[in-house]
Amino acid sequence: MNTTQEHNERIAKMTFASVYPHYITKVERKGRTKEELHQVIEWLTGFDEKKLQKFINDKATFETFFEKATLNPNAHLIKGVICGYRIEEIENQLTKQVRYLDKLIDELAKGKKIEKILRA
């Protein structure tokens, strides 16, 4: 199943600040920490906690967020299904990057070891 243009545009315009609290809630509800969440986000994007806070304060869109990110060279190893989409089959680069992040957070919430999540 591939994404539609409308779907891709909606994701691009969504703000990181609007989704971030849901990330925290999801991982903490499953016994993981905000620090682990930040470790996973930093691995994927290169953004430390200070930079994340700036994106939140600026209400940056995912488009801006990933434009400024330095994606981890091993990000291509993130595979599987998230939100009904097989990551490897997503053609739109931005949508794929957002789904990478979703998948990592999902794995964290499911209790996977950090070393496995970070594709070490």
Rank of each mutant, 00 (worst) to 15 (best):
E91I: 05
Y100R: 01
Y23L: 09
R10W: 08
L44D: 01
L108N: 02
L104N: 00
L94P: 03
K113T: 00
L71C: 04
F55W: 05
K68P: 01
I87R: 05
A17M: 11
A120N: 02
H38D: 12
Y100H: 06
V98I: 07
Y20N: 12
F62V: 08
N57A: 13
L108H: 03
I114C: 02
L108K: 03
E36G: 02
P73F: 04
Q93R: 09
F62R: 03
P21W: 14
Y85V: 05
K116A: 09
K54P: 02
S18Q: 14
L118I: 04
A69G: 05
T95N: 09
G84M: 03
F16D: 07
I90A: 03
T25V: 12
K96P: 04
K96V: 06
Q39L: 06
D106E: 13
A69M: 07
I105Q: 03
A12W: 02
T95K: 03
E49I: 12
D48H: 09
H7L: 08
A60C: 12
Y85D: 08
W43H: 05
K59S: 11
H76S: 12
R32H: 00
E89K: 09
E107F: 01
N92S: 05
I114L: 11
Q39K: 11
S18N: 13
E89D: 14
T45P: 06
T33K: 10
H76P: 07
E36H: 06
N57S: 13
G84N: 06
A75G: 02
E107A: 00
Q53W: 08
E88K: 05
I105G: 03
K96I: 05
L44P: 00
T45K: 03
T61P: 12
K50Q: 14
N72C: 00
D106M: 13
E91H: 11
H76N: 10
L101P: 04
K50L: 12
T3H: 08
N8M: 07
E6M: 05
Y85N: 04
Y20Q: 08
Y85R: 08
F16N: 10
D48I: 08
I78K: 02
I78L: 07
E6I: 10
T15N: 01
G31C: 00
S18I: 09
E6A: 04
K110R: 13
I117S: 00
E88D: 12
H76M: 10
L37G: 09
I87F: 00
F55E: 04
E9W: 05
N2R: 08
K112E: 15
I105P: 10
D48M: 06
N72D: 08
A17D: 12
G31A: 06
I82P: 04
K110Y: 15
Q97E: 15
R29S: 15
E6V: 09
